[in-house]
Amino acid sequence: MSVPQSAEFFIDPGRCIGCNACLQACTECDTHKGHAMIQLDYVDRGRSPQTVPVVCMHCDSPTCAEVCPADAIKRMGDGVVQTARKSHCIACNNCVLACPFGVPKMNTGMNLMMKCDMCYDRTSVGKKPMCASVCPSQALLFGTREEVVGLRPGSRILNTFRFGSQTITTKVNMLVPKRAAVEHLDVLSALHEPPVGNDAGEDVLLAGLGPED
């Protein structure tokens, strides 16, 4: 079953259950077998089971490529920002430090920056990326806009981020609640927000604490 050329990548962090399937599946992708290019972290495990998956957002003007002194990082015509070319990468770490999303990782053993290339070997031949194929909660979804509109009536699509004064648009889309009155995602202020979700605080869990019946 091949997916249409118009398929795009969507992230709905509200659906993420932290199961690790994306990360494990990422290591099975042929372009970087054995290495996971996804990051999956708890927001604050002590307070909540909330987790956030981070893939390369494939920026329209990729900061990683802009700061690369060796011209190792290419953005393809279809908007996919490739991982560093082995022949060019000088392992200077510029991209690692500059990426506002914190995506590129330096593989010191290989002297090479590595990051998600949206499973280029798969998506270029009509397959879904590994992570979005397996994601049990479909927090990571690869499909067409029409499919997403049908599957996620409560969400709308957003791909503009703000980091201080820097505004970034990306090929990868976020799904945000339809009612949310935002036109961009302010990442810096989100860094200081507590986990989102049901209150797991003492008022809920202590409500019925009493002697044994």
């Binding site: 199961c19 399937a21 990360l23 494990q24 599946a25 194929s133 397996v134 994601c135």
Partner: peptide
């Protein structure tokens, strides 16, 4: 030596948990 998601199977349509992946 590895796996490929089986997208046509109606129950999971390619989806797998980490145990299935590995």
């Amino acid at each position: 030596i590895g796996f490929e998601p089986w997208l046509e199977f109606p129950f999971n349509q390619g989806k797998l948990c980490p145990k299935g992946v590995k």
